[in-house]
Design a binder for these strands. Structure first.
Lengths: 202, 202
DNA sequence: CCTAATTAATCAATCGTTTGATTAATTTTG
DNA sequence: CAAAATTAATCAAACGATTGATTAATTAGG
């Protein structure tokens, strides 16, 4: 494998597990089998590695959402697809999702912060557009759109970040099998919640 | 002020802003006006300071909830009080809440991790008891209790951790005035959501 | 006077980064 | 084509700075 790539892979794993500050360039070098100097050679700095990882990951984010929004289906069906897509992607990459939120909550490293914030913000706009469309068409009841989105994203995030014992008695999110069960429960719950909540009063 | 106390205060501020690893003992000393050695003199180590801060903060957590649960009111009224209490406490201490979640998501420092996990877990049990009670009494519809709790806590947490521009167009959670507006919107939204969702089918 | 509190100075260890040298591959030139 | 020049990739070693922690000496308080 490419040395540049192996550095990125090792760094991502370490950043996820130990945090950015908690990871040393020596660890990255050791874990990737590369010489320390290669980190600065390819990425300029430790932060450069971090930025490269996040940039790469964020790329795939927006595509999925915009495709859903442009689909020729009802707003409710769009919203259901958004819930599925979000839950799936986040629960399939909990370690990375945690790291992203750590970085967002710390707000050191401004370049990184802005990058993540923009990505989140754009995703949010797509969902907002779907819900607003539903309200205007009379498919949805009039609700606090931003708060509804906070509920959808917050619920998914909460399930993804909670340690096993917190989300269920016996289910452990770190186990792939349990993770899939939780994912399904989460999707079912959120769909039902959204439908109940958005259903126009008769 | 007591030097021990001023160390704790300075450290909490720094840990919140810069993270645990991102804060140096020299910064704590400088900011608190104490000599570096005083940190180890009073708390044994940097981690000792951290543990002391978290322990102190967590103390006040459980009390509020158990009081609500023992109240002689309906499960729905209890749940409304829980939502109010949670939203208020977390939105009034967003910095600390972020730090707590960082620590929980990192899971370095085992002693700290267990402490927070237990605190969260116990809070969860109280809410679970309220909702289960409501279901058994027929006040609530049969729902996925854990997922409902994930929604309540997740929504609050999401509003608390999102950067200003993400939660609203113009509202900025860092401004006390905007924070109060958001808090009110959040409470109204969650109450309505819970009531709609838990209302038994006719 | 003795214990507790506080200080400045220092410790080894580790941090992220840079250096100069070396190798291997590629390009330019006669 | 072959020799010379250039480039990219890699390395061990060392850089100065900073880390958390400790020491031994000094001061303050009951």
């Amino acid at each position: 494998m490419d040395k540049r790539t192996s550095i990125l892979q090792a760094a991502e794993k370490l950043f996820c597990d130990l945090g950015y500050e908690g990871t040393s360039t020596r660890q990255i070098a050791r874990e990737s089998g590369a010489n320390m100097a290669m980190i600065n050679y390819y990425f300029g700095s430790k932060e450069g590695v971090f930025i490269e990882i996040m940039t790469e990951r964020i790329k795939g984010f927006r595509a999925q959402l915009t495709i859903i929004d442009e689909d020729k289906i009802s707003p409710m069906e769009k919203l259901m697809k958004v819930i599925e897509g979000y839950a799936d992607r986040i629960l399939s990459n909990t370690a990375f999702h945690k790291m992203m939120h750590r970085e967002l909550s710390l707000a050191q490293r401004p370049e990184m912060y802005e990058k993540i914030k923009d990505a989140v913000s754009q995703n949010l706009q797509v969902i907002e557009h779907i819900v607003t469309e539903g309200i205007e068409n009379g498919h949805f009841r009039q609700v606090d759109v931003r708060m509804l989105i906070a509920t959808i994203m917050g619920t998914i995030s909460h399930v993804a970040t909670s340690p096993g014992k917190v989300t269920g008695n016996t289910l452990d999110i770190s186990k792939p099998k349990d993770r899939d069960i939780l994912k399904e429960r989460l999707i079912v719950h959120l769909k039902e919640l959204a439908q109940t909540f958005l259903e126009p009063k008769k």
